[in-house]
């Protein structure tokens, strides 16, 4: 990630720190009874077992049956999985979800960091700005949807400006083209995530020792170089965390597609994501609980792939 020349003092420092960290991650402790960690984990684990693991097992079982909503089902083996793999809607949704994650995650790792750097400096009124940037997180989905429609529809603000400036001859079909709709939804997700992850980065930025910046400044590094060589290496663990969190939320995206693309999930349903499909299949009068469970499990496997990928990435980076 950092192609800095080895001779530069800050890069050297960062490398040393990285090496130190690689050691730290695996340290054990001396005095310990085997059950001590479990004592610490007890409340958390109890909760997780009851409210996450049990439903998880439940879903696995359901995915092997043809259960419908409020109606029992029989064991059908892997039929639901076979059906999903042969269902074009599943593949569209899978592609959309992967695409969504691939775009949203890098954006949400980097842009909130830039925003955090912007509001980190204590200038007068900064508290107001920080709070204000956080508001999209708490804004209601309906209003967010209305606002973005107003911006993006064919006679909306963005298109009006683009047409006036003669950038485009015809309004861009942001909301009526399957792919563009997905892009629009990504923009909304990123917009909502900016303030949220900004707070994460602010927490991390507070810990970057001022001396590092000062040393770099004395070396004559400009703001951009300081950002690249001091700030980024120091907040790297936080970037990993934000990457994980945003990947998880990107894989779960539903609302943005729904508010911009309606209940069909965009024209022809072309913008549906996996969670969208799961809801559609599983709810309603003829809700196919079993099939929906199978798609949930497939979504889970996809997440597993992503998280393994993430771990590989972060490990490769540390060595």
């Amino acid at each position: 990630m950092s192609p800095a020349p080895r001779t530069s003092p800050k890069a050297g420092r960062a490398a040393r720190r990285r090496a130190a960290r690689a050691q730290e991650t695996d340290h054990g402790l001396v005095h310990r009874r085997w059950w001590t960690p479990y004592l610490f984990l007890l409340p958390g684990l109890a909760m997780v077992l009851t409210f996450s693991l049990w439903p998880f097992v439940n879903t696995v079982v359901l995915s092997l049956t043809d259960a419908q909503i409020l109606r029992g089902g029989g064991f059908v083996g892997l039929d639901n999985y076979r059906r999903a793999l042969g269902d074009p809607a599943f593949w569209t949704a899978l592609t959309n979800s992967v695409l969504y994650t691939a775009v949203v995650v890098p954006a949400l790792v980097l842009m909130p960091l830039a925003l955090a750097v912007l509001v980190e400096r204590k200038v007068p009124g900064i508290g107001f700005f920080r709070s204000a940037y956080y508001t999209p997180v708490i804004a209601s989905a309906v209003v967010v949807g209305l606002m973005w429609q107003w911006l993006l529809r064919s006679d909306g603000l963005v298109n009006t400006v683009l047409v006036r400036l003669r950038v485009v001859a015809e309004p861009v079909p942001f909301l009526t083209d399957g792919t563009l709709l997905l892009v629009s939804a990504m923009i909304v997700t990123i917009w909502k995530g900016l303030g949220y992850y900004m707070v994460f980065y602010l927490a991390a930025l507070g810990n970057v020792p001022r001396s590092l910046h000062e040393a770099a400044a004395i070396d004559g590094a400009g703001a951009l170089r300081r950002f690249l060589h001091v700030t980024i290496p120091s907040v790297k663990p936080m970037m990993l965390l934000v990457g994980t969190l945003s990947a998880i939320s990107a894989l779960r995206v539903f609302t943005e597609v729904y508010i911009l693309g309606g209940e069909s999930g965009g024209p022809g349903g072309d913008s549906r994501t996996l969670p969208f499909l799961i809801r559609e299949v599983g709810l309603g009068f003829a809700g196919e609980t079993g099939y929906a469970a199978a798609i949930s499990i497939l979504l889970f496997l996809l997440t597993l792939v992503f998280s393994l990928l993430g771990r590989r990435l972060s490990k490769g980076d540390e060595r």
Binding site: S52, L53, F56, T59, I278, R279, G282, S296
Partner: peptide, 9 residues
């Protein structure tokens, strides 16, 4: 357990 759509659980 991190990744389950709420509707299914």
């Amino acid at each position: 357990t991190l990744m389950f759509p709420f509707e299914s659980v």
